Computed example of a mutant assay.
Amino acid sequence: MSKLPFDPIDEARRQWTAHGWNDAAPGMAAVTSIVRAHQILMARVEESLRPHDLTFARYELLTLLSFTKTGSLPLSRIGARLQVHAASVTNAVDRCEQRGLVRRVPHPTDRRTTLAEITDSGRELVSKATESLNREVFSTLGIGGADIETLNGVLKQFREAHGDY
């Protein structure tokens, strides 16, 4: 895809204003910018995870499990922590289980609950994938330290205002 010689979101905002939608123009520009930033970031994340044969959803699952004291969590708690639907958790666990990165184990005290438990292979892979993401994405956003903290604060405020947590 070739680069445009202008910012298309600035142009859309100009058009919004020209059509009399002045009050909505800043919000439209913000939403469009966030959506575009998401596309850019996900492309970078996917590129970084590709050599590890991981999707971001599976990476998040492995990371979450690796951060727990026992290396395991009930499937229902995984969904809540990752803020995804139970079907997404099942799919990610299935795929990781097929690769030997996690295993399903019975809960030691609740027969109705199944745990997803990270394996040594899963720990090794998530460690390597994290190194890649830290180097290729998280540490190279193109936004300076103070600005990134401001952005984090603004996005946290947005998420809280919309009941994200």
Rank of each mutant, 00 (worst) to 15 (best):
Met1Trp: 10
Leu4Ser: 08
Leu4Glu: 09
Pro5Glu: 12
Phe6Asn: 04
Phe6Arg: 01
Pro8Ala: 13
Asp10Gly: 05
Arg14Asn: 08
Ala18Arg: 10
His19Thr: 01
His19Trp: 12
Asn22Ser: 12
Ala25Asp: 09
Pro26His: 04
Pro26Thr: 08
Thr32Ala: 15
Ser33Gln: 08
Val35Leu: 15
Arg36Leu: 13
Ile40Gly: 05
Ile40Asn: 06
Ala43Thr: 10
Arg50Val: 02
Arg50Met: 04
His52Leu: 03
Thr55Cys: 00
Arg58Asn: 07
Arg58Lys: 03
Arg58Asp: 10
Arg58Glu: 15
Arg58Gly: 05
Tyr59Pro: 03
Tyr59Asp: 08
Glu60Thr: 00
Leu62Ser: 05
Leu62Cys: 13
Leu64Cys: 04
Lys69Glu: 13
Thr70Arg: 10
Thr70Asp: 10
Leu73Lys: 13
Pro74Gln: 05
Pro74Phe: 03
Gly79Val: 07
Val84Glu: 11
Val84Ser: 09
His85Ile: 07
Thr90Ala: 10
Asn91Phe: 06
Cys96Lys: 02
Glu97Ile: 05
Gln98Val: 06
Gly100Arg: 05
Leu101Met: 06
Pro106Gln: 09
Asp110Gln: 13
Arg111Gln: 11
Thr114Tyr: 01
Thr114Asp: 10
Asp120Arg: 14
Ser121Asp: 15
Glu124Leu: 13
Thr130Ala: 14
Thr130Glu: 14
Thr130Arg: 14
Ser132Ala: 15
Leu133Ile: 05
Leu133Arg: 02
Leu133Cys: 07
Arg135Glu: 13
Val137His: 07
Val137Thr: 05
Leu141Tyr: 01
Gly144Pro: 00
Leu155Glu: 03
Lys156Phe: 01
Arg159Leu: 05
Glu160Asp: 09
Asp164Gln: 04
Tyr165Lys: 03
Tyr165Ala: 02
Tyr165Thr: 02
